[in-house]
Design a protein around this nucleic acid. Structure first.
Length: 690
DNA sequence: GCGATCAGGT
DNA sequence: CACACCTGATCGC
């Protein structure tokens, strides 16, 4: 549960995900997603009064969040005061103090957070630096590096502070099976049951919260069976969700709820009350999505656990695991990181101890890497025997790869995201948030060294992925990016060894299911339980292809973009916020926003110029000041072959390409080393013969 | 009657 | 397997 108090040290005039107490004075409000623990005070009389008095105060959120919020009558009073901002569309907002007329400009960019429909992270850029509020998020390793607007000049932006979802920021939660792995596990369990007869039904015992929709849509897609839910009016403008849901109880997949649902289930009664179909009794299993986690060294990652004769728990998480958080933060590498959540059973201090080493030292704007001695040696050619670790940097890399150097090309707008933090900032931060300040003394040399290493490997691994297919609504720079990139072995011949693979048993086919009431392929939860295990990347790619075929064959409506079909996890994370769940409604926001919506599949809609929304008495104007570099290609970093990947954004193999054999590589290397010409027999290697 | 808070449940 | 709710009791206005 979020304990973020609503305000960020750098921009205290805005409030995010909190609407009570101090936040009642905010000049603008932001809502990252539609979960109640992020909406405290949002419908309180105090705030309603504030709205009536201050006609220039608005709530900013994603279009989906706006739609979900306004579905509830309790929040209807917000109707005229919400401005939805498209994902990945930098938007300028004027923060005006209505009493003094004082004005502050800020640019906000919504980035998909992968937590639930409409969930976003907020990237704020203004005079006090660039800050990122993650809200709640689940991003697999490498997804961060694909967010164009987190980057500038081929590097991650210089981010002063990150306000971070630390729900699972504890080594206990080292890994959580990826979205795709969890989904395929659940798919197989459901398949094994509902294919037995039309009277075999599953009940998905989901909590009352947004976030299970991608499970529903994928199940529906896979089996051509709509999911029974209590309500679906909130999705009335999201056809790609709506089409997979039904209020007709006559279906084999239920996600309906009832206060006495568990009791009902004991009596083979579904929450919606039915026990039979055509007077033939139903055979029901329950599947309870819940977070399951595994330690660093755990290799078994069971996704389904049987908890009773007809009950299963299935792995499912809305939040990033410990390693995903660390990947995320070390990639962003902010000056400060503040936990939004203190996980149960841990303390603020412990969380801070984890975050600190992943941040820059707050006083070292220019990171100093441990192997500086190497640079000195390179110039003086003097040997420096006392520092053995220098040898780790054989290649002269005098410039930090990750961080923007102080004088990067300035953004062509009035906000300068370079840190303008005064020396007293740390104290201010401590006071205003009561949270963590990255301490330069302790992040020290070692930290920077580690960070450099990790950033290199991660960027290398993730930065050359052609995520965008022509015509899809990805950021405009994607295509340029792909074209400019130099092919890398790692891209086209993706290893499988970065996903824990312990010789998993493959799932038996559903035909194996015997006569018993429960599927046989899962044993009980008494310790010997084996289950659907974590699958390697090729399997998850395979599943996604099945899904893709389903889309093609089954529906005349394209519900997900081609990009979203690339993997199951893409459906789960990205489409939640992007084209997949984009409401169709037209909103009266501003000329610029409407234009964005109407041309969403057009590259023009990805024009990286900053939108301006009418805030605080500003008349709507259209601006397209460019500030995003043409070349957003990431830098080449070195590979970390052992890095764990929990992503399902696995790099698709080039069709018909095969991993080169060791002996072939050896041959090539030898030839290259001796300068001989390479004669390629049989299979021509397009990567080597240029 | 409403909201805030807490305890307890899933 | 620890989320994001729900319900109900109590207190204050």
């Amino acid at each position: 549960m979020s304990s973020f108090q609503g305000q960020m040290a750098e921009y205290p005039n805005i409030s995010i995900d909190r609407f009570d107490r101090e936040n009642l004075k905010a000049r603008a409000y932001f809502l990252s997603h539609c979960h109640k623990d992020h909406m405290k005070g949002l419908r309180a009389p105090a705030l309603q009064r504030r709205l009536e008095c201050s006609l220039k105060v608005y709530l900013y959120c994603s279009p989906v969040t706006k739609e979900l919020l306004l579905t509830s009558p309790k929040y209807r009073f917000w109707e005229k005061r919400i401005i939805s901002i498209e994902i990945e569309t930098p938007t300028q907002i004027s923060l005006v103090d209505e009493a003094s007329g004082e004005k502050e400009e800020i640019v906000v960019t919504l980035l998909p957070a992968g937590h639930c429909p409409g969930s976003v992270m907020f990237l704020f850029e203004g005079d006090n630096g660039t800050v990122l509020y993650t809200g709640d998020f689940r991003l697999a390793k490498g997804e961060t590096s694909r967010m164009e607007l987190l980057h500038y000049g081929g590097r991650v932006k210089d981010i002063q502070s990150v306000y971070l979802d630390t729900t699972f920021c504890d080594p206990r939660f080292y890994q959580i099976p990826s979205r795709g792995e969890c989904l395929s596990g659940i798919l197989e369990l459901v398949r094994s049951w509902i294919t037995r007869s039309p009277y075999h039904v599953v009940w998905l015992n989901c909590k009352a919260a947004y976030g299970y929709e991608y499970l529903f849509t994928n199940l529906s897609e896979e089996f051509g069976v709509q999911v029974h839910v209590d309500r679906l009016d909130m999705f009335r403008n999201m056809p790609d969700i709506l089409h997979h849901l039904t209020t007709d109880r006559n279906t084999q997949i239920h996600a309906c709820r009832h206060p006495k649902a568990e009791e009902y289930f004991q009596w083979n009664k579904l929450p919606c009350g039915i026990t039979s179909k055509s007077r033939i009794p139903l055979h029901t299993i329950s599947i309870k999505p819940s977070t399951m986690w595994f330690g660093e060294r755990t290799r078994k990652t069971n996704i389904i656990v049987r908890t009773g004769e007809s009950s299963y728990r299935a792995c499912f998480s809305f939040h990033s695991s410990y390693s995903e958080i660390k990947d995320f933060l070390s990639y962003i590498c902010p000056v400060n990181a503040y936990p939004n959540v203190i996980p149960m059973g841990t303390t603020v201090d412990k969380v801070i101890e984890i975050l600190k080493p992943l941040c820059r030292a707050s006083q070292n704007t220019e990171p100093k890497y441990k192997p500086l001695g190497k640079l000195k040696r390179a110039r003086t050619t003097a040997l420096d025997s006392e520092e053995e670790e220098d040898d780790l940097f054989d290649d002269p890399l005098p410039v930090p790869l990750r961080h923007r150097v102080p004088n990067q090309p300035a953004l062509h707008r009035e906000v300068l995201p370079t840190a303008a933090v005064s020396p007293d900032q740390p104290e201010k931060l401590r006071q205003s948030t009561g949270c963590f300040i990255a301490d330069s003394m302790q992040t020290s040399l070692c930290t920077n060294f580690i960070d450099c290493e990790e950033s290199n490997s991660e960027s290398e691994e993730e930065s050359h992925i052609p995520v965008s297919s022509p015509g899809d609504p990805g950021p405009v720079t994607h295509q340029q990016k792909v074209a400019e990139e130099v092919p890398q072995w790692e891209v086209f011949f993706k290893r499988n060894d970065d996903v824990p693979d312990d010789g998993l048993e493959n799932l038996p086919s559903s035909a194996e299911a015997g006569d018993a009431q429960s599927p046989q392929l899962f044993s009980d939860s008494d310790g010997e339980s084996t289950h659907i295990s974590s699958q390697n990347s090729s399997q998850s790619t395979h599943i996604s292809e099945q899904g893709s075929q389903g889309w093609d064959s089954q529906s005349d409506t394209v519900l997900l973009s081609s990009q979203d079909r690339n993997s199951l996890e893409t459906k789960g994370a990205t489409s939640l916020n992007k084209s997949g769940y984009r409401p169709r409604i037209n909103e009266n926001v501003s000329a610029s926003q409407t234009e964005q919506k109407d041309t969403q599949s057009d590259l023009k809609s990805r024009d990286p110029g900053v939108n301006i929304v009418p805030s605080a008495a500003e008349p709507t104007t259209l601006s397209s000041r460019k500030h995003i570099p043409q070349d957003t290609r990431l830098l080449n970093h070195s590979t970390n072959a052992d890095s764990q990947s929990s992503s399902d954004f696995e790099i698709p193999s080039t069709p018909e390409a095969e991993l080169p054999k060791q002996e072939h590589l050896q041959y090539f290397y030898e030839k290259l080393a001796t300068g001989e010409s390479i004669i390629v027999e049989k299979r021509k290697s397009s990567l080597l013969d240029t």
